[in-house]
């Protein structure tokens, strides 16, 4: 794959221009309540900049904290599964079940337990980011070259040494792949949590989407959706950068591997 900086900027930019043109064309044929044009969305962004910014920050905070909690629990449980087959047998089915739990259905419970707003968004983001991280840790920690494990055993390495110097580093590529999935999901999770478990204090992107749709302010809805997409992009980019920094030098196909 070629990845000159100019091309890697120009290609997405060309797509963006194409999408904008198609969007404007389509919007000019539809009433604004169905599809606001790029110009009116841009107006909404500029006019409501302060509200959008505060909402995006609140959502980013919830997504980030949720991702942190989901990752910590997922990775911790992954190590637990590595060390205890019994724990894996006992807990894995429920972890799977948790993944299918619709946040919408339990949002009222989350509100009762945690209160309105950010706590529900954090819990919802943690809930959706937990499973990809658990799977990644599980696969990554087990997917070690058996001969390397033998090597460590031969030198009498402890379980902790084996984890720290062999399994954890060798799981990093899988964990980062999981993190990329989880990072995007955490933003969606936070927004869903806000959508069903927010009372507008503080304002958040999920709340803005809900509120603006109710008042038929589609331009603001789109602005909030675009802010959410930017947020997901930033989170993904951060995960990707951390990945390239940490494992790029040695893991083929990541970051530096394409150069």
């Amino acid at each position: 794959m070629s990845g000159t900086p100019a091309r890697s900027m120009a290609l997405p930019a060309a797509v963006a221009v194409g999408v904008l043109v198609a969007w404007a064309g389509l919007a000019s044929r539809l009433p604004e309540v169905l599809l606001p044009g790029p110009i009116s969305v841009a107006h909404a962004v500029v006019d409501r900049w302060e509200l959008l910014g505060r909402s995006a920050l609140s959502t980013a905070g919830s997504a980030g904290l949720g991702l942190l909690i989901g990752s910590a629990v997922g990775l911790g449980l992954g190590v637990g599964f590595l060390w205890s087959r019994a724990l894996e047998l006992a807990v894995y089915p429920y972890a799977l079940l948790l993944q299918t739990l619709p946040v919408v259905a339990v949002a009222p419970l989350l509100v009762v337990w945690l209160g309105y707003g950010a706590p529900v968004a954090v819990a919802s983001a943690a809930l959706v980011s937990f499973f990809p991280m658990l799977t990644a840790a599980h696969v990554g920690l087990l997917g070690v070259d058996p001969e390397q494990v033998e090597l460590f055993r031969l030198y009498g390495a402890s379980r902790l040494q084996e984890l720290r110097w062999l399994r954890a580093p060798s799981a990093l590529p899988a964990v980062f792949a999981g993190l990329r999935t989880a990072a995007g999901l955490s933003v969606i999770g936070a927004i869903v949590g806000e959508f069903v478990g927010s009372n507008g204090e503080p304002p958040s992107l999920g709340y803005l989407v809900l509120r603006s749709a109710r008042s038929a302010d589609t331009a603001l809805t789109f602005a909030a959706v675009i802010a959410a997409a930017c947020l997901a992009g930033v989170v993904y980019w951060a995960a990707r950068t951390a990945e390239a920094r940490l494992i790029g030098p040695w893991h083929p196909g990541q970051g530096g591997g394409r150069a």
Binding site: A107, P108, V111, Y116, F195, G197, N199
Partner: peptide, 8 residues
């Protein structure tokens, strides 16, 4: 305490 969708 304001509520929202499905406020319990």
């Amino acid at each position: 305490i304001p509520g929202g969708p499905g406020a319990p």
